[in-house]
Amino acid sequence: MTAVADVVAPDARKAGRGVYRTGVILLCAWVIVPLYLLFVNTMSSPETVNSFPKSFIPEFNMGSLNFFMGFQGILMALWNSVVVAVLTMVMSITIGAPAGYALSRFEFRGKELFRLLILLTRAFPLPLLALPLAVLFIRTGLDDTAFGLSLVHTTLAIPFAVLITFSLFSGIPLELEEAAWTLGCTRLTAFTKVILPLVLPGITASAIFAFVISWNEVFAAAVLTIENRTLPAFLLQTLGEAPLHLKFAGGFILVVPALIFIFAVRKYLFAMWGIANR
């Protein structure tokens, strides 16, 4: 480095830091501002929502939300969404976690094939599954039921459940489990007394993740349900004719749990997506 460069460097660095900070703030705004605008709309009376020009400050009027809650079928749709998401959450973890454990702890013939099957699901547009299943479900009486839809959503969530729990279990040293065996545990009690308490937070996070996957899914929900629509399917169906304030309030209700959940699992987000996806 020459002396000139040394003199110039601090200024250049300061400028660089300024650009960097501005960039970070702009990108944060890019994410937050649209959300804020939805919030403004939701917190305004239906009249305000449909009027012009818009104010950028919410008037904290519950009119839109009240209208939304009172709208025919909305509460049922909301309830259906919750039921389907909870079923999906329970099924994907109870079915997926044992496989994640098997992948992390055992070497067995066909392990690679199994991994391939799991990874394969990622290369397919899974919501398309709903098409043939719609016919199948009619035959088995599962059509238009929360359980039927949750089966499809579980298919969406299971690859993640398996891969996430696989990385969670892999993070627990085998030695801990072996120590438990030498201290009088069976495979099962070693799992419940040692492994489970250690992975429980991570399992909870991946369960929440499964919930969000189901909560947000539109296509399969719209294809598979008619009377018992979930909230996204209901909103999609009414997009054409519904008034603006219903759409915005509905969008807001869709977003809120997602916000809370992402906040709750933020610690695990990177472990879950990053490592599990490799």
């Binding site: 994410v31 959300l35 939805l38 947000n216 759409k247 997602a258 916000l259």
Partner: peptide
């Protein structure tokens, strides 16, 4: 920055 991860495509469209 990761908030949109939890937001459905439908909600994003509405936003």
């Amino acid at each position: 920055w990761t908030i949109p991860l939890g937001i459905s495509d439908l909600a994003a469209g509405i936003i």
